[in-house]
Design a protein around this nucleic acid. Structure first.
Lengths: 200, 200, 200, 200
DNA sequence: TATGAATGAGACTTCATTCAT
DNA sequence: TATGAATGAAGTCTCATTCAT
């Protein structure tokens, strides 16, 4: 980031550029993400885009960060409301929240999924993994006193990635799947519950 | 494919072009996959590349198909040898085989993973899913007579995608994970076993 | 045209690109008309060319339009000054004007002639035909009250095409003809006069 | 021509290559005229094409020559049968013959017309002009004893070119003209007659 | 002689980035 | 600061021509 958007106007501009980037990707795919187009959609000139982003990559990174933050915000919102629920219900609640995030900007999920490499989706996922781990620990502390309160790193890794990617893959399916979304969520929740409660 | 590689020399060329594509991707990423570069690496001229591939996309598609076929071949080879094993051992065997495929051409997995959308990784996955479903049914018939022999589509979808993507994500981790590969395999195998044997 | 050349500088650039295209064609033929070369000759980069022309074809089309407009402007300028003249003198005046247009950019005529199909020379001719028809009607009204004021479409078609192409062919002759240009003009004018005044 | 096609088989091959070239042009335009395609259509390999034609240009030249020869053959066939007719009937007969040649391979005329420059349509026209001049002289000798037996070069030039190009342009009109072909022929014949019989 | 795979120069076009205004 | 025209490297693809078999 070339300069810190201390000023109000700058922050607004950065946001609208990221928004514009998301819209372009959602509408026409990552291939269509050109700096001129994003700037135009944001209602500014390319020059202004480069005032706030060093290059195209940092713009995309910012977009990814945004999605990741949305995801984290969603689980953060939902998790506390479900600490009392059984594992499967807990997982289900988080899954539904995640689904909503991905569907919020239809088309974006598909394209992000498709390019989850470019730009640190990896980095994003790492942040998400950490957050999820925290949530799991909190849940475990509250509910599963008798069990391990600390899922092993490997198991946490599997849990997060299995769910996130299965979900993304489902969302990016070219044609409707052979099953309903509800069924997918239920099965994923069951799997998550088993993973959480399984003995080491 | 512009012309069918009926002749020996042509088939060899097609193969070496796909190989070259894989090497370029593995070494420098999908972004570096230019037609000229692939041709050069294969020791021929661009023109020759276009003699066998309509365009760059079909080349990448061929590369994806190749990886997919390798994957299918690997599980096909291993599965029959493990029909007698318990679910977790069965899953473990397949996982190890898959790991080997992905590690065969170092770096390739990472980049393919990263672009699993482009060019029909999706299509490839579908083929792989079908094959895995067959193997599972065969295994179930032989081992789990008392259980459902037919995992629901949703569950199969979760099983395949969770494993494949978790595995790919692990392989594409920028820095070593906090856990050993063996641990990951064991946990994945356990998860798979639970998923296979869990009641509907 | 990708963007309308509203601004002065842009208009100048568009013009200089068309000029450059004309020069390249005149000097080395239509085959030598490459986008890079035209841009270079205009003193800008290819990118700039594509800022104002969607592709090579639209550039050529613009060049054709330019020639066509020049032709129309020339006859429009000369015709009013000769409404009082007899048919042959009228035709002669227009012919001389046309000759001048075609000779203005030496070599261009030859190449345009050679490719009169590509890019709407046809369309251009149609515009020219219409304009000529108008001029003929105006002339007929003023001079030939006793004759038909409206040449049949077929006759007008013959009149225009015979003159334009004969003239172009003359200009694109590789070696000097067996006769003087003046003689050609005179004969063409006579033919035109006969065609105009001949009874239906 | 790399070698004289003395042998029967060679002559046949050359002919079939020219035929193939004409068919390709007629069907898909001059842009589609690639050596490989022509060879394939002729049922031989590119290599064989280059056995008889130095390069693509000579092939096209040969095609043009062929059309030109067809044209000359047509007027040569028709002219003697009409020496007794009046000028307009004579002209009409030749025009109809020319029309038939151009329509023989539908589409070819349009494309040839469009590119009458490339390859010596010019050269071809010159041969055609000479032949026409001969025919006109013969006709004049037989019919117009009292007039000039020798049309001036300029007038002959105008006569030939006006007719040929008007005709070609008519044939290459994208949409049907406002008048019937018969009307065009009649008007052209009348114009020709006037041109032939007009005093110097 | 015939074949047709291989060559590779070169054409078109895009788009991230800069910088004069 | 904002603008957006200009830049030009780089990528994809074509096709006339050659030459080993």
């Amino acid at each position: 980031m070339r300069k810190k958007p201390i000023q109000q106007r700058a922050r607004v501009l950065v946001d609208s550029l990221i928004d514009a980037a998301g819209e372009v990707v959602a509408r026409d795919g990552l291939e269509a993400l050109t700096t001129v187009r994003v700037a135009a959609r944001a209602g500014v000139s390319v020059g202004s885009l480069y005032q706030y982003f060093d290059n195209k990559n940092t713009l995309v990174a910012a977009l990814m960060d945004r999605v990741n933050s949305d995801l984290i915000a969603a689980v953060d919102r939902v998790a506390p409301l479900n600490v009392g629920a059984d594992p499967q219900a807990f997982a289900r609640a988080l899954l539904i929240a995640a689904f909503e995030v991905f569907e919020a900007r239809q088309g974006l999920a598909r394209e992000l999924m498709r390019h989850w490499h470019r730009l640190d989706i990896a980095r994003g996922l790492h942040r998400f993994e950490s957050r999820m781990l925290d949530l799991l620990r909190a849940y475990a502390l509250a509910q599963l006193r008798e069990h391990s309160v600390d899922p092993s790193p490997a198991r946490a890794f599997i849990l997060i990635n299995s769910i996130v990617f299965t979900l993304l893959r489902y969302l990016s399916l070219p044609s409707p799947a052979m099953f309903q979304r509800e069924e997918l969520i239920e099965e994923l929740a069951a799997m998550a519950a088993r993973l959480i409660t399984a003995p080491r």
